[in-house]
Design a protein around this nucleic acid. Structure first.
Lengths: 232, 232
DNA sequence: GTCTATACCCGGATAGAC
DNA sequence: GTCTATCCGGGTATAGAC
């Protein structure tokens, strides 16, 4: 569809993407130069352009792949389930887990949409993908309300509140923190189902092996995320 | 303490700060140039420097003032209350209301800490202010747990989850949306108290007249926030 | 208090050697 | 596939006229 692609499946390509995700997540896209990227992978800025058509195309590629994988993983998880309570529980725990386990990719995905030129094909494409993902949430909530198992004041408000809670993990979750990922997800599912006044039953639990894979996500390291509060 | 101040209380100063908050919130600090700022207030870039010592000092000033006002407003609200349930309810609804009513300032406050040079006095100062604010949350949760009125798996996890929910409103809340601010706050308080397993009693309600005032916050306009999804 | 002009640097991106 | 060298625009910030 769009030929503006970046070098995949080569070793240099992967190293560049990994460095780009790290730098874009930490400093932001606008504050990261191609020269910074070059330094991070021991190349000159000109070398980068052998693997990348432009800085913006690189960002778009990362975001496109991340959004697509999130959608596919979500659909893999939801497939066997029909009940809105199960589907909402899976949406909450999978979104939480993705943000906790791949915080750098998630931060780029959630925070750099504004860096794509408005009106460009890439910008429109990423928005469409994000909307396609969010449709799963809209439908789960609408189905639950329609079937009378959810009681909600405003579906949009509820959806956005729960999504904020889930995506927030990319800012603070640490694998060596006080809670395991399973505990975080269980807690968030409990909060979410309480928010829609769903009766406390047993609902589906996320299978983390179905999560998307981002081969370029840098390892969950030292001071990231929130390097500014490492001392806590 | 720090003399690196920006022109306050003059008309030009206010117009510059208003434009800066708008641009920093929309495009990000790094992607906003002093020339952009000049265009927005009908000045050349050189004119800006008559009111601002540097771009970074301007950002620091905005963040410092916003954090200070948030802290002061929070303390005004909390003052009459002792019970952890009341205090948590007020923390939730005031943080939500501030992010909903002054989304641009809030987005800068929450998202641009990384744009202050690490190690600079301003960077350290803003972190200290943010920590001072978050201490109110820590104490409310710790007190509730200690007094046996809250039951919580991990206090840090709970605090960060609830704060994410509250701050998220700066990304999606619209005054002309389906819910009033009072409804949003009430819903979030209910979710928050459920998250700490607090018994359902009557808790204090936020008095919005005690909220901080940001004289530079641009009016809640047309497509902001989330200009990319105006069509929804 | 705002302008024009300018210093100086760094940004994205390309050409062409090796 | 990576380099050096280069183009050119735009960045922050300052000097000095009005």
């Amino acid at each position: 569809m769009i030929v503006d692609l970046t070098d995949r499946d080569t070793d240099a390509g992967r190293r560049i993407r990994t460095a780009a995700v790290l730098l874009f997540a930490r400093r932001g896209y606008a504050a990261t130069s191609i020269r910074d990227l070059g330094k991070a992978v021991n190349m000159t800025n000109a070398g980068i352009y052998h693997h990348v058509t432009s800085k913006e195309a690189l960002l778009a590629d990362l975001m496109r792949a991340a959004q697509r994988e999130l959608i596919e993983a979500t659909e893999r998880m939801l497939a066997p389930y029909e009940r809105p309570g199960d589907r909402l529980a899976l949406l909450i725990s999978s979104l939480t887990a993705v943000h906790a386990l791949t915080p750098m990719t998630s931060r780029v995905m959630d925070g750099e949409l504004r860096s794509l030129t408005p009106g460009s094909a890439a910008h429109a494409e990423i928005i469409a993908l994000r909307d396609a993902y969010e449709d799963h949430w809209k439908h789960a909530l609408a189905d639950g309300v329609e079937q009378g198992v959810f009681r909600v004041a405003d579906e949009k408000l509820t959806r956005l509140a729960l999504m904020s809670m889930c995506t927030g993990t990319s800012e603070w979750y640490r694998p060596d923190g006080d809670s395991t990922l399973e505990q975080v997800c269980a807690e968030f599912v409990a909060i979410g189902l309480a928010a829609v006044r769903a009766p406390a039953e047993a609902f589906a639990t996320a299978d983390f092996t179905l999560l998307p894979e981002f081969p370029w996500e840098p390892p969950h390291a030292s001071n990231d995320p929130r390097p500014d509060e490492a001392r806590r």
